[in-house]
């Protein structure tokens, strides 16, 4: 029986005396490779997958007043294998720090068995943009099992604990869960001055949380419509706020 890759990658950023954000630690590991550019830190898939059996973990540390943007160069394709594949992201963001995490979509291919976990600890005064898109199967293909869990705390208080369990079609295909959507996405924004007004539109809900964050949840028949709906939701939730300026200026390097 073949065993999957175990990869542990990490990046830390700090703000230097000149007010610039500087990478103080960058660790790529096998298929989980990180590349620094002027705009962002890129996840570069150095191998296909994840395949069943793979166990990837990315640890991010954003220091006080530092900013980090994470992007990826390509879609992540979750593929079958001997056992479950796992992707875990852990991040801590210190006061005044900002993390903008927005990789390309994940595609849950037929037969995959993928578990995605993210745990984010925000200090009081930290801000966040966390963007996720999931495509259920390649073209005309039924997806395998994909489960995700997203835990965000702010100053030690839980802000959002959110699972999406796409492992049993009789449940997730229910007209009360995701129905016949082929693309599901969400954006979590955390900032002090976001809109407190909920909004709805076809396949889109903008949900102000009990704490200072807004969850934008969208579903669609394809990825292009999904992306449009998420963009509309972000506009409704955060237009003209400090977070917009933050994301526009987010950078991973010192250049």
């Amino acid at each position: 029986m073949s065993r999957g890759y175990v990869a542990r990658a990490a990046a830390s950023v700090e703000r230097d005396v000149g007010g610039r954000t500087r990478l103080t630690r960058l660790r790529s590991d096998g298929p989980l490779a990180l590349r620094e550019t002027a705009e962002a830190l890129y996840l570069v898939g150095a191998a296909a997958g994840p395949l069943g059996g793979d166990d990837f973990e990315l640890a991010l540390e954003i220091g006080p007043d530092a900013r980090l943007a994470i992007r990826s160069v390509a879609t992540t394709l979750a593929l079958p294998g001997d056992s479950e594949s796992r992707m875990t992201v852990r991040a801590t963001v210190a006061a005044g720090g900002h993390l903008d995490f927005a990789p390309e979509p994940t595609v849950a291919a037929a037969g995959c068995h993928h578990r995605s976990t993210a745990a984010i600890d925000l200090a009081e005064g930290a801000t966040l943009r966390w963007y996720e898109e999931l495509i259920l199967g390649r073209h005309l293909e039924l997806p395998g099992k994909h489960t995700s869990r997203f835990d965000v705390t702010r100053d030690g208080v839980p802000l959002l604990r959110h699972e999406l369990r796409l492992d049993d079609p009789a449940v997730f295909g229910s007209r009360s869960v995701v129905g016949d959507a082929k693309a599901i996405g969400s954006v979590l924004l955390v900032a002090p001055d976001l809109s407190r007004e909920p909004h709805t539109a076809e396949g889109l809900a903008v949900l102000p949380l009990a704490g200072s964050g807004v969850l934008i949840a969208a579903a669609a028949g394809n990825s292009a419509v999904l992306r449009r709906r998420l963009a509309q939701g972000e506009e409704l939730a955060g237009s003209g706020t400090s977070l917009n300026a933050m994301n526009a200026g987010a950078s991973s390097n010192s250049a």
């Binding site: 229910s174 009360s176 995701v178 909920p198 709805t200 579903a219």
Partner: peptide, 21 residues
């Protein structure tokens, strides 16, 4: 308590908001 289950139902969330308005 942090590890208690948290499965979401995006359509129920959307319906709940539609109903309020």
């Amino acid at each position: 308590w942090a590890a208690l289950p948290a499965p979401s139902a995006p359509i129920l969330d959307l319906y709940a908001e539609l109903h309020m308005s």
